[in-house]
């Protein structure tokens, strides 16, 4: 890559880190295709009917918009590496869940919107928190969780509400969202991470944890 391009990329990355959507879009349009090439052979043929490269990339781009603040990259090469790592993680999320589903599922039966469903979700989410914390599923925690869910983008709210809390099947949720199964699983993985982020910012929530 030449100096002009390097310079432009650096400027775009600088703008991107401040949340400039146009800069992020430009970077993704420019370099996403490389990530596409890197992951397109990673999807096993057995999953291709429920998970496409586009699914992975769309989720990856969405994550890029959300996580851009954490980006340390100052060059195109490191940006591509970062984006590839997001893509691979999304892909792993989806494949793990698809595998589990194919094996018959490891999902526990829960009463829709019950305390137990919130507790299960909290367990899942707390597992992704930077500071792990065992959580008691008391009413306070449930309220805090509900508030945090309300702050999420709509698609993320839907997947958490309908899949995790109401116990609907992944197929039904996917259909409502107009996404493939793989994309829906990825969306859920990302929703959990985002939820953890939102809750992580609410230190008062954890004040109640033992």
């Amino acid at each position: 890559m030449n100096n002009d391009q390097d310079q432009l990329d650096e400027q775009l990355l600088e703008r991107a880190r401040t949340g400039d959507r146009e800069a992020i879009s430009t970077l993704l349009a420019k370099h996403g295709v490389v990530v596409r090439q890197r992951i397109e052979h990673d999807i096993s043929s057995r999953w291709r009917s429920v998970l496409s490269v586009d699914d992975v990339l769309q989720q990856t781009y969405a994550e890029a918009f959300v996580s851009i603040g954490q980006l340390k990259a100052t060059t195109a090469v490191s940006f591509i590496a970062w984006l590839t790592s997001l893509a691979k993680r999304n892909l792993i999320d989806a494949v793990r869940m698809l595998d589990a589903q194919k094996r018959g599922g490891d999902r526990q039966k829960i009463e829709p919107n019950s305390q137990a469903s919130y507790a299960a979700l909290l367990d899942l989410v707390s597992a992704t928190l930077a500071t792990p914390s065992r959580v008691v599923a008391g009413k306070e925690a449930t309220d805090a969780l509900s508030k945090a869910i309300a702050k999420l983008p709509e698609a993320y709210r839907v997947v958490i509400q309908q899949y995790d809390l109401e116990g609907q099947s992944i197929e039904d949720v996917a259909e409502k969202l107009g996404k493939s199964l793989g994309a829906t699983y990825m969306l859920r993985g990302r929703a959990h991470r985002m939820l953890a982020g939102v809750m992580g910012a609410q230190s008062n929530f954890f004040s109640q944890a033992p």
Binding site: R21, S25, L28, A29, G32, V33, R36, D54, L57, Q58, Q59, Y61, A62, A64, F65, V66, P153, E154, A155, Y156, L187
Partner: peptide
């Protein structure tokens, strides 16, 4: 493809 996916990502993340 990339532009479409980026737009879908924006819609997903920022809608609502």
């Amino acid at each position: 493809d990339e532009q479409r996916l980026i737009q879908e990502a924006i819609d997903e993340v920022f809608s609502g």
